[in-house]
Design a protein around this nucleic acid. Sequence first.
DNA 1: TAAAAATTTGAAAAAATAGTGAAAATAATT
DNA 2: AATTATTTTCACTATTTTTTCAAATTTTTA
Lengths: 222, 222
Amino acid sequence: MNVLIIDDELLIRDVVKEYCLNEGFKVLEAANGIEGLEILDKEKVDIIVLDIMMPKMDGYTFFSKMKEKYNIPTIVLSARGEEYDKLFGFSIGIDDYLTKPFSPKELIARIKAILKRFTKEEIDEFTYLGIKIDFKGRVLYIDNEEIQITPKEFDLLKYFIENPNTAISREQILNKVWGYDYFGDDRTIDTHIKILRNKLGPYRDSIVTVRSIGYKFIYEKA
Amino acid sequence: MNVLIIDDELLIRDVVKEYCLNEGFKVLEAANGIEGLEILDKEKVDIIVLDIMMPKMDGYTFFSKMKEKYNIPTIVLSARGEEYDKLFGFSIGIDDYLTKPFSPKELIARIKAILKRFTKEEIDEFTYLGIKIDFKGRVLYIDNEEIQITPKEFDLLKYFIENPNTAISREQILNKVWGYDYFGDDRTIDTHIKILRNKLGPYRDSIVTVRSIGYKFIYEKA
DNA sequence: TAAAAATTTGAAAAAATAGTGAAAATAATT
DNA sequence: AATTATTTTCACTATTTTTTCAAATTTTTA
């Protein structure tokens, strides 16, 4: 796996490099966007770690140009307070971002996660009892009949299916399905669960409540 | 959770301590690496916050020695401009770093993140005699039969299992399972123990009463 | 062995929590 | 701009869980 790290600070490059090498990744370095593009033309790159604030060519510009020619998963490093709006507007398409100073181990963990996502084909169908889910088409079938399901409900169900037999707290659910920046009421989940259960029909008991914690999706392996 | 903070500046230690205590972490302090190692020999430490520039024994030396004997997650505090090469040559193994001056809130957030990562690798199943516990799903099985268990009972049982063969006082139990802000009656525990014992069925004697102290979970290693 | 101290236990009161329906607020479509 | 769909809030109830308390039992002490 080849990791391209683009940052004008030697210090940052070194620390990322050190950790990447330790994981058995090959490392390529660039001090700015221009150098970065040059490397892309010459070398095979599997993942990019990209700083935003750089001389010569900044991260935004680099990213757009990279997207035109390649489609390489990218993790952005941004300093705290660094033009959040712009970052966010542009963030469509980035795969992850970390604020500086960041934890090296966290970066590695995220690199791994992204590589896994890109190399492993995600299953696009799930079947259990009479529950069938088409992830790609975002359709739910109960006993082979299509059931209308809203986006939130679908995401929620998906999250449960991805974490079977695990008691998941309301907070976790909120964080993962609604996003870390959501500050609404816990009990909203309950209402969604209610609806979801109704839509699951005969299989409503697959979602079990775990008192004082949250809920759990029961999946009994054959 | 025990946090060991190693820094020669009293001021820094105090600030970190203040915030840690506020989070319910226990704090241990050392003014240099030598003191730090001494504490490690005596106390259980879950995470280390380590300054680099210190008299007597600096952070690098401390870190290497610590790694030889223990493997405790470590966050490094470094002043900007502080021998970067050395810092990052050595950085393999540190879990995070912050440059001074740092935000205490950020430090706390990072401590939490790391602790989470480390405790995440905890086992999610416990088996002993006919007692089986699925921590992830929060389920108790006795002789392979699922037994209904309430949240408090589960937390209590979990606490016992995490501290086997240890006489635990009612006060300790109250603090850890009920939380430090609980001001109810001691005797409440007795009632929960009663119920727990009943649910443990044939293995009710695994919870032994330690007169005038509290209770103890017996776990005889094979 | 009797008195004192501590624990066990059962039953009932108190508190916490989740299920639910309906309405309000938001967002998406027409 | 109006309509429709989705999401969120909220209050009320039913249920479960937790706590309290006093009598019964056990253990320790004098």
